[in-house]
Design a protein around this nucleic acid. Structure first.
Lengths: 231, 231
DNA sequence: CGGTTGTTTGAGGACGTTCAAGTACTGTGG
DNA sequence: CCACAGTACTTGAACGTCCTCAAACAACCG
């Protein structure tokens, strides 16, 4: 018995919600659900996918290791996320590795089962379209940030987005080191960016908690209203 | 009669190839094909999509304008590309604008027709999954480059990829200014990066043509260790 | 042919990284 | 509860990369 929990979480994930019971049943029959410790590597860059993974609880990070040994964090995904579906769909090697940042409940679906459902169940294919479309937009936003904003601006922008969901008090889920790499900067620069925004009165940071004090100031620091040349 | 050309190009695009004649007919019936001059703006950032666009011939660039006035080029797409499907699928505002870089033959499909086909024709939905998956991988690659490589390395990496398709002699389709912004650097840095790779003997550049002289040297300049073959 | 646009090159400066040192936090065993 | 080790975080200084500004040069198009 795989448990109602997995089904519920899949439905919450948005992908499951559109699926028939029969379809969900087939997916679940071809899968296993495990609770894995933090640090687990679900798959590695360059290998060919043998399964699709769904994060039911916890968090997983997409990382890529450069030749220099530097590890860049591409994105961090929370509960209800299908991981790296593109590689599974196309049967091509992963472009990134995936590591759990927390103990997580992960559903592993055999790749052939996943593809069979994609081909045979129109509603599943339709749901995957929406899912990929959403992820696409995430990545576009990140590329825009990386190409046109400075380090402090990227942090301000990210905080603004977080606060839209989490409210004025943001609890950082990852270490600042990881967050820094996700935002495309060094941990040191991240620390200085936090200090800069605090000095401006836009935020107040204590430990792993950030409180947004002045949204408009944060927005202007993000380059949305104008830049702060006064330094 | 919209012409065999549009149908042929759609089939070549990979999306059309999997579609029934009936399905293709419905898409074509809800669309118009135009030849538009270079510079045409197909849609603008922030607006809600009313149509899906397909580049049949020519090239279109996804651009985003920062408040600083700086225009960043997110990606450049050639023939057979469905543009910004995610926004159309989800009915959300575009995250970027689209401008034609050449005179181009563009097919414009009414958004409601596009969505109806997505919902009603499983094979279309399935084909869109593949298309989005491919684009997703493009973007992931770009994010990795931006986060972990320097300017010259990014150029080398891009040249390597281009040469995999175009061979040793690469004809730059865009001005260097546009290419520079696509790679996330200033035109001046682009020029210096070209000069650096030439000095190393990896390439030889004359005008808008780049010849790859030494693949392994180019690969090492890209931060790879000599590996050229890849998926 | 001159005007416009694209490209190269140089100098200076802003930004971010790295290196290095010091401080705070966390969990462990005494 | 404390001491301790290990890790995370901050801060400072030196350095390198890339951008901006500016000017010379080349290519294109009327």
């Amino acid at each position: 018995m795989l448990g109602r929990q997995a089904i519920d979480l899949l439905r919450e994930a948005g992908v499951g919600s559109a699926l028939s019971d029969a379809s969900l049943g087939r997916l679940l029959a071809g899968s296993i659900v495990q609770i894995l410790p933090a640090g687990t590597v679900l798959f590695e860059e360059g290998t060919v996918p043998e399964a699709a993974h769904v994060v039911l609880t916890g968090r997983a990070a997409l990382v890529s290791t450069a030749k220099s040994g530097q590890e860049t964090v591409i994105e961090i995904f929370g509960p209800g996320t299908f991981l790296l579906v593109p590689a599974v769909v196309l049967g091509l090697p992963y472009l990134a590795s995936c590591r759990l940042m927390q103990e997580s409940r992960v559903m592993t679906i055999r790749a052939d089962v996943f593809r069979a459902e994609l081909d045979g169940e129109p509603r599943f294919a339709r749901a995957v379209v929406d899912m990929l479309a959403g992820h696409w937009r995430l990545l576009i936003g990140q590329i825009k940030d990386l190409k046109s904003l400075g380090a402090t601006e990227r942090l301000a922008d990210w905080l603004l987005r977080e606060s839209e969901q989490a409210g004025d008090v943001i609890a950082l889920t990852e270490t600042k080191r990881v967050l820094a790499r996700r935002l495309g900067m060094s941990p040191e620069s991240f620390s200085r960016a936090i200090a800069a925004l605090s000095d401006q009165g836009a935020i107040a940071a204590t430990g792993r908690t950030v409180r947004v004090n002045d949204r408009s100031r944060l927005a202007s620091a993000a380059g949305r209203l104008g830049s702060i040349a006064g330094g």
